[in-house]
Computed example of a mutant assay.
Amino acid sequence: MRSKSLLRPRDVIGHVTHITPEFLAERQLHGLLLDLDNTLVPYGSYASGEAAEVLAWARDLKLSGIGLYLLSNATGRRAAFWLDHLGFQGVGLAGKPNPRAYRHALRGLGLPPTQVGMVGDQLFTDVLGGNLCGMHTILVQPLAVNALPHTRVARKLERAVLKRYGHDWRP
């Protein structure tokens, strides 16, 4: 993979629930690594009731035989809270985009990188790390506006990169 394409997602979608068993079969994917904040739930949210749609989506994918693994930079406590509700394995404080975190997660799924999609809302963590490991990367529209200063800066840079690839999002 050429270095200038490391920030290019293979797919860009509006919401994680747009990923269906059919979507995955078309791409020959059997598992997903999933970011937490602004991908599955709004940043900072602990309201599992508001995540009912995503919880049902994850349950349905698991029932379809799709392997799921949470790969999040959120705190271990926050990741543990959501893993309990989601019902699958994963880690917090993963250290994305470090490829070591992705390789650990792939071992947890027992699948090669070519059969796994990395799903997240950030180019410089989720997409970059997934591409470095040879995974199919799927960028989703962020669920919420994050007020952290470093995230605001990253979002501006993401807009420029996405525009270069023909996407005009306002994350």
Rank of each mutant, 00 (worst) to 15 (best):
K156N: 07
P112F: 08
V41Y: 04
P9E: 08
W57V: 09
M135V: 09
P113H: 06
L36K: 05
R107G: 10
H18K: 12
R8N: 11
Q122I: 01
L143A: 13
M135F: 11
A51L: 01
L6T: 07
D37Q: 03
V127W: 07
D11F: 12
R8P: 02
P149W: 14
I19S: 08
N146F: 13
I138V: 15
A160E: 11
Y43I: 02
A58P: 00
G90H: 06
S72P: 02
L132M: 12
Y69A: 01
R27F: 05
R159A: 13
R78A: 14
G49E: 14
Y43L: 04
G130S: 13
V140A: 08
L157W: 12
P112Q: 09
L70M: 04
T114V: 13
F81C: 01
W82C: 01
A105K: 09
Q115S: 14
N131F: 04
L70T: 03
D35V: 01
P113L: 09
G134I: 09
L34W: 00
R103Y: 15
P21W: 06
T114I: 08
P112M: 05
G120Q: 08
A52K: 11
H18E: 15
W57A: 00
A101T: 08
L148E: 15
E22L: 11
A80P: 00
A79V: 05
N73D: 12
A58S: 12
T39G: 00
L36R: 01
Y46L: 14
D60G: 02
L111Q: 05
E22K: 09
V127Q: 00
Q115F: 04
A147E: 15
D37Y: 00
G67M: 03
G14S: 14
H104I: 14
D11I: 08
H85Y: 05
G108A: 07
D121P: 10
N73Q: 06
G95R: 10
Q89S: 13
R103H: 15
R78Y: 02
R100L: 15
L7M: 10
V16Y: 02
Y102P: 04
K163T: 07
A147D: 15
A51G: 07
E158H: 03
G49H: 11
L128Q: 02
H167C: 09
T39N: 01
I13V: 13
G92N: 03
M118H: 04
H85W: 12
V161H: 02
P99N: 13
S45D: 06
M135P: 01
P42V: 10
A58E: 01
D35M: 03
Y46N: 08
S72M: 07
G95Y: 12
L29A: 01
S72A: 10
L71A: 06
D60L: 09
T125N: 05
